[in-house]
Amino acid sequence: MDGFLRVEKLGKAFAADKPVFSDVSFKLDRGEFVCIIGHSGCGKTTILNVIAGLDTASTGHVFMDGREVAGPSLERGVVFQSHALMPWLTVRKNIAFAVESRWPEKKASQIDEAVRAAVELVGLTAAIDKLPSQLSGGMKQRVGIARAFAIQPKMLLLDEPFGALDALTRGTIQEELISIVRKTQQTVFMITHDVDEAILLADRILLMKNGGETDAGYVPGGVGEVVVNTLPKDRNRRNLHHLDGYYELRNNIVDFLVTRAKH
C-alpha cells in the first residue's frame, strides 16, 4: 500500500533560522488510527493544521489519496481541541450547518435525518435541541465529533479532543470513538498528551522531539520514533493494563518523552 495520506519532508518556521520542526515524513494507510505524542510546543497542532489545509508548511508536501492538499476540504473532518461549536446554534443546527455544507442539494428532511443519525451515534438524542452553553464539556466534545462524522469525510483529524475532560468522561468517549471508528472504517490522525489514550486507540504512535539548542547549534524538532502497537485489536480500557507487552510499550513511550524528546 502506497499510503492513503503521505506527509513528505514537512517543515515549519515561524522565525526563519529556527524552524519548529523539519523533515517530518510519515504515511497513514486507509483505516489506520495514528496518534502523535510530544511535549507542548513541539508543533503537533501545526502539523495537524497543515494536513487539514488550515495552515501552510514552510517546506514539504502533504498528499491525500494521491492529490496534494492545497486547502481545507470536506474530505477531512476536523475535531478541534476547543470543540468550536457555534454557540448561537442548537446541537441540531450546528450539525445541520455541516451537513448542508457537504450536500447543498439535500432537502430539509434528508438533512434532518442525517443530523439525527449523527447525534444518535454519539448518544445525544435527548439534547438535540439544546444550545452548546447548556451542555457539559463532554457533551460538547461529542457534538464536535458527531459534526465531523456527519459529513462522512475520508479521514478524521483530532486535535486533543479529550484534553479538557475528566478521566471518567474521557474513558466513555474514547470507547465511543473506538466503536464509531470501527463501524465506519475511518482513517484517523489524532493528537494526544495521554500515553494510555494513545496505546488504547492507536495502531501506530508517532513520538515527536522538540527543537532546541545543542552544542552544534539549533536543531529543529521532528518525529523521533514510531511505535507500532502490537496489543490485540479488541483491547479496551479495562483489560489494557493486564495485556502482555503493555508495560514495555508504555515504558518505552514514557522514557522517550522524559529522556529522548529534548535535544
Binding site: 487539514a52 486547502g71 481545507p72 477531512r76 476536523v78 478541534f80 468550536a84 457555534m86 450547518f97 455544507s101
Partner: peptide, 22 residues
Amino acid sequence: KREWLNVASTLEVKPLRKALKV
C-alpha cells in the same frame, strides 16, 4: 473567533454564506 472561521473553512463554506451564517 478563529475556530469558527476554521470550522467554516474545513466545511468549504462559500464566502457569502460564511458572512451571513457565521
